[in-house]
Structure formats: structure tokens, C-alpha cells
Amino acid sequence: MSLLSNTAVLLGKELRTEFRSRELLTTTFIFILTIIVLFSFTFDPTSDESRRFAPGLFWLAFLFASSLMLQSCFLREQPNDTLSALRLSVSDPFSIFLAKLAANALFLLLTELLLLPFFTVMYNVPVLPVLHWLALVFFLASLGISIAGTALSAISAQARMRELLLPLLMLPLLTPILVASAEATKALLDRAPYVPWAGMGFLTVFDVVFLTAIWLFGEYLLEE
């Protein structure tokens, strides 16, 4: 019970500080919007071309943007040593991870949903008929990126070359998520759309495995 209540309190803190500064959301939104707009004008794709390559482009942009977003996840606890204060206060250190990954997943999901209309217009792909399935793919992929990214952010925050280390660790590890979510999105945006059960199954398994790993070993990642 204290795990859930601590997580809820910490999630409230993460959301409050972000919505007060809007630092991460603004940066991520502008970064991805720039990529979407730039590629749309550069390639000027037809509707069929868009259906083939736009999902990959969309998720690649999110992967890079998430490395920007996740970089500061634990780094911003360092100047005032607030991570130590959290470790001294919570009954289960897993709640620190749980709150951070939930906040990151929410921020990613929010950015995806905000950018979806721009994506639809710029690439001329109708998403309304499959919006609910698309939302599920977004949810599973955002969760996977956040779970693995938050753990790697905790590791890299303690390293000397932290700015370099996070993308180096994160990009190869998240490539399977990128492939699965791009394939799933492509299936949903097809002229004859179908539900990508294999892709969604893979994303679910990825999320469960990494969440379990953090639950088991996360405490060690927070140690000095």
C-alpha cells in the first residue's frame, strides 16, 4: 500500500514540476514537430509512400526525443541531492522508479497525441478509424521507452560522460521497441488496416520484462 501511495505522491511532484516549467514537454514537442515538418517538405510523399515510411519516421523521431527527455530524469535530482532525500523518505525505492517512469510515459504519450494531428495532415494518412488501436500502440511503446529509459537514466546520471552514455545505452536497447511499434503503426495505417497482435504482444512482453527487472534490481541503481 505504501508503495502505491509513495508512487502517487512522487508522480504528483513530477507532474507539478514539469507543468510548472514545461521544460521537457516544450523541447520534445518542438523537436518532433520540426522533424515531421522537415521530412514532409523534403520528400513530399504521396499517400501510399507515407503509409510505408511515415510510421518509421514518427517512431525514430520519438526515440531521439525521448533520449532528450529522459536525460534530465535523474540528472535534475543531483544539484540539491534530492535523490538522497527521496531514498531516506520512501519505504520502497521502487516507488521512485515507478513515479518517474509513469511521468515519462505520460509526457511521451501526451506529446504523441498532440503531434498526431500534425502527422495526419502533413503525411495525409487518416488515423480516425484506427485511433483506439493506435492509442494502445502509443501507450505500450511509450511505456516501454520510459521503463528502459528511466533505468538507463539512473545508471548514466552517476557516470562521468553522462550526456554521451544515455543515448549510447538507450538507442540500441530500444531498437526492438522502435521496430515493433513502427511495424504495428504501419499495419494500422495500411489501406486495409489490421490489428498487429504480434507487435503489440512483443511490446507487452518487453514492458513486463523490463519492469520486473527494475523491480528486482532498481534499488542498486540508486545507490551512490
Binding site: 511532484k13 510548472r20 544539484p79 540539491n80 541531492d81 534530492t82 538522497s84 532525500a85 531516506l88 523518505s89
Partner: peptide, 30 residues
Amino acid sequence: IRAGFVAHATMVYDELTAEENLLLFSRLQG
């Protein structure tokens, strides 16, 4: 044992108010 610890760094959040900081930690500690 949950010690009360004052370190070199303040261990509080600059982006929260004094009251929000203390409420955050008191809720975490139950």
C-alpha cells in the same frame, strides 16, 4: 531506522515552494 539528515546540499526542490517541499516529504514518510 530512518535518520533525519541535513547534508551539504539542501535536499529540497528549488521548483517547489517551502510548504510543497515539506508536504511532499512528510507524505512520503507517512
